[in-house]
Design a protein around this nucleic acid. Structure first.
Lengths: 230, 230
DNA sequence: ATTTGTGAATCGGTTCACAGCG
DNA sequence: CGCTGTGAACCGATTCACAAAT
C-alpha cells in the first residue's frame, strides 16, 4: 500500500486497536494475528487487515503483527507521540466529571484549563486546577498552548463557548452540549450526545418489545418479559 | 414509501431532527421545509427528505412538514411516547454526573437506580436517589422494571456489570467504560468512549499542523498559529 | 502451514435530479 | 410555482477470496 489518505472509518477504529494492543501487552503477548486483534477490538479480521494496510505493511505473513511496533505506528499515525493540552468550558456536573476523568491523561490528553462564566465557580478548585474566568479564555488558551477545546456547557451557551475557542485559535473541538455548532471549515468538530444514544437504544428496544408481543401472541407485562439466552 | 426497516443511519439521525424540531416550536414555527430542518439539525436537505420518507409521507408538497405532527411521528417511531427506566452502574465521577444530568429526564429517560460495589458508596445520596448494592441489582432491576442499563464503571469491572444487567433481563445497554463488551445477540449495546473521540481529533489536528508547516514553510509556534476565518 | 495484503464484488448510505403533487 | 418523495447514479466502506510471502 502506498499513497496517503486514510479513510475516516479507519481513523475512527485506530484508537480501538490501540486500546486492544495495550491490553495484549499487559497479558504479555508479543505478537498478534489480525484475527486475535479483531477479537480484542470487537471487529472482524478483514477489517483489521484492510485498516492496518493503510498505514503500511507492518505485519509478517504466517506470523502476524508485532504488538509493540504496531502500537508505535498507530500512535504515530494518530499524532499521539506528543501530549495535547485541552481546556474544558462549562464546569457543571459533566465538566467536573471530565476534569477528573483519569482516562484522558493516560492517553496523553492534559486538561490544562477549566473555564466557567459563573462568578460562584471561578476560583473553585476541581482536581488540580482552579476554574478560571471565561473572559480570560483567549489569553489563557494562547499562554498554555491549548490545542483542543471540550465544551460541556448548556446547549444555550455552547455556541458562544465555541466561538471563543475558535477566536483563540483552537482547531479541534469536542462538543458535549446537545446542540448543533457552527465552526469554520478549518476547525474539526466532534460531538458526543448522551441522550441521543439513549434514544437510539429506545428505538431498538421498542422494536424488540413489539416483536416479542407478536411472537408471544399476548401483551407483554413486565414480569412476563424474560431474558432469552443469558 | 411502504414496507418496514429503517436504515441504521436514519435511526441515528432521528433524535437530531427531534431536537431541532423542539427548537423550532420554541421559536413558534409551525411548519418547516426539509431545507429549514436540515439547517437546524446540521445535515443536508436531501438526507432529511429521504430519512423522513422512511417514516411515511408526512410532508405537504409546496409547503413542508408540520412541526408538531412530525415531532409526534418521530417520537412514536423512536419509542419515546413512553418513559424508559434506566439504571446506572458504577457511581464514580462519570456515574455521578450522569445521575445528575437533566437531559435524560427531559427526553423521557428516568434514572431509577444507582449501583456500586463499593461499601463506602452504598447508601450515599446522589441527587434524589441513594446508591444501592450491586449485589441487589437483579432484584431491583426487576422490581423497578429497568429497561436500560448504563455502565459507568472502570474498564475492569464493566463486563461483570454488563453480565449482571443481562442476567437481570436488561436488553439495552449504554457503555461508557473504555472496553469491548460481550453481549448476547438479543441485547442492544451502544458505547460512548470519551478518549477515543479525542484521539480522532488528534489525528486531524496533527495532519493540519503538518499541512500548515509545509505551506507556511517554517515550524509552527503557538503564537504564530492564528485562526483562519473566525 | 499460516497469515498478510489487496484486487474485486458487494453493500449501505448519500447525493442528484426531477416527476408528481398541493 | 415550491417543495416533497423517490428512482437512479454515485461513493465510501465492508466483505470476500486468494495470490504472495515467510
Amino acid at each position: 500500500m502506498r499513497e496517503r489518505a486514510i479513510p475516516e472509518a479507519t481513523v475512527a477504529r485506530l484508537p480501538l486497536y490501540l486500546r486492544a494492543l495495550y491490553d495484549l501487552t499487559e497479558r504479555g503477548q508479543q505478537t498478534v494475528s489480525s484475527e486475535g486483534l479483531a477479537d480484542a477490538a470487537g471487529v472482524n479480521s478483514a477489517k483489521v487487515r484492510k485498516d492496518l494496510s493503510y498505514l503500511g505493511s507492518y505485519g509478517t505473513r504466517g506470523v502476524g503483527y508485532d504488538v509493540e511496533y504496531l502500537i508505535y505506528q498507530i500512535k504515530r499515525e494518530l499524532g499521539l507521540t506528543q501530549d495535547w493540552n485541552c481546556a474544558i468550558v462549562g464546569i457543571g456536573n459533566l465538566g467536573r466529571a471530565l476534569a477528573n476523568y483519569k482516562g484522558f491523561g493516560e492517553r496523553g490528553f492534559r486538561v490544562g484549563a477549566l473555564f466557567d462564566i459563573d462568578p460562584e465557580k471561578i476560583g473553585e478548585r476541581v482536581g488540580e486546577l482552579a476554574v478560571e474566568d471565561f473572559d480570560d479564555l483567549e489569553r489563557i488558551v494562547k499562554e498554555r498552548q491549548v490545542m483542543i477545546g471540550i465544551i460541556a456547557t448548556t446547549a444555550q451557551a455552547a455556541q458562544a463557548a465555541c466561538d471563543r475557542l475558535v477566536a483563540a485559535g483552537v482547531k479541534s473541538i469536542l462538543n458535549f452540549a446537545p446542540t448543533v455548532l457552527q465552526v469554520p471549515d478549518s476547525v474539526s468538530l466532534r460531538k458526543v450526545d448522551l441522550s441521543i444514544e439513549l434514544q437510539i437504544l429506545s428505538f431498538y428496544e421498542q422494536r424488540k418489545v413489539a416483536l416479542d408481543s407478536i411472537r408471544g401472541g399476548k401483551r407483554l407485562t413486565a414480569s412476563a418479559s424474560r431474558s432469552t439466552r443469558p
